[in-house]
């Protein structure tokens, strides 16, 4: 186990190195001059030259990338071209919102997903199963920018039940919860659908497995068969899906944050790409990628605990 974690750690470093190079070179290659974005449309040629010099944009590519890496090695993620503030600070302000959104969406997704999946599996081939399967597939198929806009229209504007946008209140207050509902549904729908499908197929498979039959034969109560023997075993693949989805959610908040005006890392990334704010793009992408890898690592560890058959060499 320890050796697995150590190996994964080295893989992570390699990954981050690769990602930083990918991002750095793509931002370098992309048309668009960061100095022009800082200077605005009214800046003259000499204004721009001064800004370029000041930001170190006149250095050759490898010099720029090298000094960036050297700084990162010392834990310094550099300064935003736009605000001239440390990138780490800007991300620290926004990350809690993204995390909140991802966690809330995951909660929505897990509750709905497991519930719908169980119903489907327990009432296999009934109309309930068909309905829930249809909904699950529709959930994966719905464009989430469209879903978000429709939800705002219906629940915030017409019915006025929920606030339109923003996450300005803290977590565990009524206001804070209310603000979270629509964004969490918007972002969580497709994960809910994926979880539901996984729960359904996994349950169906486990129900037919030998140990469940044995349990039934031994006269274990039906309720216990479902909740103790079946569910526990059916959860193993479900946890992978949850892990994968959670990692994906962190990256997938981009559109939801835009629609609901949430001040998160996703929106920071879009704005930074649009403004050619290279250090900011780098910092936020590295963060999201690291989290994705870490979440998957945790999933793998949890896996070995619930399923002792799996061993990592």
């Amino acid at each position: 186990m320890i050796s697995m974690i150590v190996r994964r750690f080295f893989q992570l470093i390699f990954l981050l190195f690769g990602i930083s190079f990918l991002v750095f070179s793509s931002m370098y290659l992309a048309p668009g001059d960061p100095a022009a974005m800082v200077g605005g449309p009214t800046a003259t040629a000499s204004d721009l030259e001064a800004i370029r010099d000041n930001l170190g944009l006149n250095d050759p590519f490898l010099v720029q990338y090298g000094s960036y890496l050297a700084n990162i090695a010392q834990g310094d993620f550099g300064f935003s071209y736009q605000t001239r503030q440390p990138v780490a600070e800007a991300i620290a302000v926004r990350f809690p919102n993204t995390l909140k959104l991802a966690v809330a969406s995951m909660i929505v997704a897990v509750i709905i997903g497991i519930f719908a999946g169980l119903i489907s599996a327990l009432r296999h081939n009934s109309w309930l199963d068909v309905t829930s399967t249809t909904f699950a597939l529709a959930g994966i198929s719905i464009p989430n920018f469209w879903l978000g806009a429709l939800l705002i229209l219906v629940f915030s504007v017409n019915l006025q039940w929920l606030p339109v946008a923003g996450l300005s209140n803290s977590w565990f207050t009524v206001e804070g919860m209310k603000e979270m509902i629509l964004p969490a549904i918007t972002l969580g729908t497709s994960s809910a659908a994926m979880i539901a499908r996984m729960v359904r197929s996994s349950m169906l498979e486990v129900v037919r497995a030998d140990f469940v039959r044995t349990a039934r034969a031994k006269g274990v109560k039906e309720r216990n068969v479902i909740w103790i023997h079946t569910l526990k075993n059916a959860m193993i693949p479900v946890i992978t899906v949850i892990g994968l989805n959670f990692g994906g959610l962190l990256g997938g908040t981009i559109i939801t944050e835009k629609v609901f005006a949430i001040n998160g890392v996703g929106r920071l990334m879009i704005d930074a790409i649009a403004a050619r704010d290279f250090p900011m793009v780098q910092g936020s992408v590295l963060l999201v990628a690291t989290l994705f890898v870490l979440v998957n690592l945790v999933v793998d560890i949890v896996y070995t605990y619930i399923d002792p058959r799996i061993k990592y060499q």
């Binding site: 705002i152 915030s156 504007v157 923003g166 609901f260 929106r267």
Partner: peptide, 18 residues
Amino acid sequence: FKVVPEVSTAISMLQAGE
């Protein structure tokens, strides 16, 4: 000065008195 990146959201907030 509150940041609201979607215009339609901003208008809804104006309507809701936010």
